[in-house]
């Protein structure tokens, strides 16, 4: 392996704004990546606020006989009712922790949910 070539290519790569360089000739190939090309460490950054289930139970969007009042993109205010979790003996309110736009609805009417399961995502 021609280490001199590798060094030359690497030095040259640093002077450019390229992150990766690949070259192949007669079966030989060279592949060099700068640190910028490495994947970002798993840092999940989300501007969305999740609304998690406050209990294990069954999700209901509204009282019986009423239609689902929620839709994606809808604006909500802090404290708005987003549904109920019904347990054997109680009904737990699900409320919006902040004002914003309802970006994702990941629960359906009548779904069985565990404690802590994300039900909605709000973009503040």
């Amino acid at each position: 392996m021609d280490t001199k070539l590798v060094k030359e290519v690497t030095d040259w790569l640093k002077t450019t704004d390229l992150a990766e360089f690949c070259y192949g000739n007669n079966g030989d190939s060279l592949e060099i990546k700068t640190s910028e090309a490495l994947p970002e460490p798993a840092q999940f950054q989300s501007a969305l606020v999740s609304v998690c289930s406050p209990a294990i139970g069954v999700y209901h969007a509204a009282e019986k006989g009423k239609s689902l009042p929620l839709s994606q993109g809808q604006k909500v205010e802090q404290g708005d009712l987003l549904g109920w979790i019904e347990t054997v003996g109680k009904k737990h309110k699900v409320t919006a922790p902040c004002a914003g736009q309802l970006q994702a609805i990941s629960v359906q009417e009548g779904a069985v949910v565990e404690f802590g399961l994300p039900l909605f995502f709000i973009e503040p």
Binding site: A55, I56, G57, T87, V88, G89, K90, E114, F115, G116, L117
Partner: peptide, 20 residues
């Protein structure tokens, strides 16, 4: 199934959650 937060009063002592 996950039934509640760490504190036992809200999980392993939570009758409603366990029966549910």
């Amino acid at each position: 199934v996950c039934i509640g937060p760490a504190s036992s009063s809200q999980s392993y002592l939570n009758i409603d959650a366990i029966v549910t």
